[in-house]
């Protein structure tokens, strides 16, 4: 694969699709959550409104350069991630810039946004932001571990690090999905997934409802808008990786939407059922349950 200029509009198109899908899906999920809690919930277009409003607002406040950089890093992380993995299997149009690197790139690029976010929030000088970051980092390092192991396991299984080739190897029927050929790896990865989407029981980092704590505390207006955008794109980017690695990928957008939604619903479901962990509890939880599965996945593959 080589770079051609036409790939730029193609990539933007992917981005556009993913963004819209994400906005709708998030609202939908919120709605489901509300209904489970017997509340009315937000309208399905609420996220659009929020986003437009926030983008429209100009902030009159900054804490310094890193304050700008935080959200920028964050969104670059999300957008970059989706740029570096092919979204639709077999489609040259939606392969984005995946020629830049393989799975390892994706795996490490996940941290790019996290780092930036943390830096930006730190700049705010708000102690709660720092506390949130320390918790978030603590948790995410341990949560990413089973994923890394799972990826290593399937890289061993398919003897490649190329996402496209892994998807290719899963074609020809549902039984070829990694889900069935390497269930341990998938299990480890899915547990890890729970930790990284910031939903209960692992959402103490953001703790969105009860207390004003966590990185977004000091952010507002267009800063917040960037971060909101990222919260839409980033999980999907991550789920794209999951889908490609474990669930056979998607050869058209419909399958893509469906699979992403289902993967997301897994986290939602768990989050609705289980109470919230404290950070050290979640670290131990990952260490005791998810990591050994990952280890087994690597050893047994």
């Amino acid at each position: 694969m080589q770079f051609e200029w036409i790939q730029i509009p193609y990539a933007l198109l992917t981005l556009f699709i993913v963004l819209n899908f994400g906005l709708i899906m998030n609202a939908f999920v919120a709605k489901i959550g509300a209904r489970v809690g017997r509340r009315h919930g937000i309208p399905i277009y609420q996220n659009y409104l929020d986003l437009i409003k926030n983008y429209g607002l100009r902030s009159s406040i900054t804490h310094g350069m890193m304050f700008y950089l935080g959200p920028v890093f964050r969104l670059t992380g999300g957008v970059g991630l989706i740029m570096f993995v092919p979204t639709i299997y077999g489609s040259l149009m939606f392969s984005n810039f995946s020629f830049s690197g393989d799975l390892i790139l994706a795996l490490y690029f996940i941290f790019f946004g996290t780092l930036g976010m943390a830096l930006g929030a730190g700049e705010s000088g708000h102690p709660h932001a720092a506390i949130g970051i320390s918790r978030g980092l603590s948790q995410v390092t341990m949560a990413e571990l089973p994923l890394a192991l799972a990826i290593f396991s399937i890289a061993l299984q398919y003897q490649t690090l190329s996402v496209t080739e892994i998807v290719a190897a899963q074609q020809g029927g549902i039984q070829n999905w990694t889900l069935f050929t390497n269930p341990l790896a998938v299990a480890a990865a899915m547990l890890s997934f729970l930790g990284s989407v910031m939903r209960p029981p692992f959402d103490v980092v953001l703790a969105p409802q009860e207390i004003p704590i966590g990185p977004p505390t000091e952010y507002h207006s267009s800063y917040l808008a960037l971060m909101q955008t990222n919260r839409v794109i980033y999980p999907i980017a991550k789920m794209v990786i999951f889908m490609n690695l474990f669930y056979g990928g998607a050869d058209n957008w419909l399958v893509f939407f469906l699979k992403i939604f289902l993967i997301y619903m897994f986290a939602v479901f768990v989050g609705v059922v289980f109470p919230r962990f404290r950070v050290e509890q979640s670290i131990r939880w990952f260490l005791i349950w998810a990591v050994p599965i990952g280890v087994l996945a690597v050893v047994l593959v």
């Binding site: 670059t76 570096f84 810039f97 830049s100 690197g101 393989d102 003897q159 490649t160 690090l161």
Partner: peptide, 18 residues
């Protein structure tokens, strides 16, 4: 044997988005 990596294009993509 397993994968590939193009430092220049990574740098460009990231830099442009950023």
């Amino acid at each position: 044997h397993y994968g590939y990596w193009s430092p220049v294009s990574i740098m460009i993509v990231v830099a442009v988005i950023f």
